[in-house]
Write a protein that binds this DNA or RNA. Structure first.
Lengths: 168, 168
DNA sequence: CACAGATAATTGCATAGTGCAAGTACTATG
DNA sequence: CATAGTACTTGCACTATGCAATTATCTGTG
């Protein structure tokens, strides 16, 4: 996690490498939640994410949903399909432009969401309990910038990364 | 990211939920790296993680490797198999206990690792450049505690989570 | 020493998830 | 009114994952 990285840095230590550390926390924390909504509702990860999005944002179309939870159009379509099969969501074609379908959460979808969200909040609470108030504030604002930078890294692709490392 | 979460919290907002935010940064940042080592070397995610582990820790056996990069024995075995096929690693049965196989990185494995690590370091550098020195320090120590807590959350499973949320 | 019971790692196979080409249904535009 | 473009959706091949069963090996006990 040192800042003075050379272009060819063999000293990368997985357990100290920031992206791996973030991944590890996210993966470990996602596992119990996933097995909960998987066993209880037969929901996939994409399904849960979409459910969370339509719970707070009614009548969104597929691409809005996809953008909000970082899913490609295929995964989004399948996730919505899963939710409608489970009775957790309904699709209604838009009146003005029938290519768009407004997706809404159903009552039973909201019930399922509440139960998963309770577990999700419990996880977050457990994590935040390990941090001081000022650490939470710092983490919040740091994460906002990391989200922005990681999005740029993603869209740039690996060639762009090597370019600015090679010619800084 | 509020601390006062009730047992049944409907107000979970995906984009503000700490585990999702960590996941998002990790996933966005992993994508260009993955396509690099995938296209260039035909390496899987597990393969890359194992390569990083054996680059810094010679002659480790499969379970040590698995522990070090959070892979189950199946994925570890398959990852090592991939690395040996690519000529990036060799297995040698241990002299003292032939159930164990010591896995070592080869010269070409180290070359591949160097090239991937360069990209990995470039990514980390880009991320850290967005943070101040004190933010880096805070993030480092906060992440250490989050890693510990997430490991406990993972091993406890979802039932344990609902119990201590229900009876705090 | 034999041999039941661990342990480390691997393999087979069924199932689940992903990526992409192609398709449908619709709208906008010259 | 053909053409192009948009918003999904589906089918299919391929990949990954989870888990039972297997192999090979070692250890403790009578």
């Amino acid at each position: 996690m040192k800042q003075t990285a050379r272009a060819a840095d063999d000293g990368l230590k997985l357990s100290a490498w920031l992206p791996y550390r973030l991944f590890l926390v996210a993966a470990q924390v996602a596992r119990p939640l996933e097995s909960f909504y998987g066993e209880t509702f037969g929901l996939s990860q994409a399904g849960w994410r979409i459910l969370a999005v339509i719970a707070e944002r009614d009548a969104a179309n597929a691409s809005e949903i996809g953008r909000a939870c970082a899913l490609d159009p295929f995964a989004t379509s399948r996730g919505i399909g899963q939710l409608t099969e489970l009775g957790f969501a309904v699709r209604r074609a838009s009146k003005s432009d029938r290519r768009f379908a407004a997706v809404s959460i159903t009552r039973s979808g909201r019930t399922a969401f509440s139960r998963i969200a309770a577990l999700g909040s419990a996880i977050e609470t457990r994590l935040l309990a390990r941090l001081s108030e000022s650490e939470r504030t710092t983490l919040d604002s740091a994460l906002t910038r990391l989200e922005g930078e990681s999005a740029r890294i993603d869209t740039g692709g690996w060639r762009a990364l090597l370019e600015d490392a090679g010619a800084p």
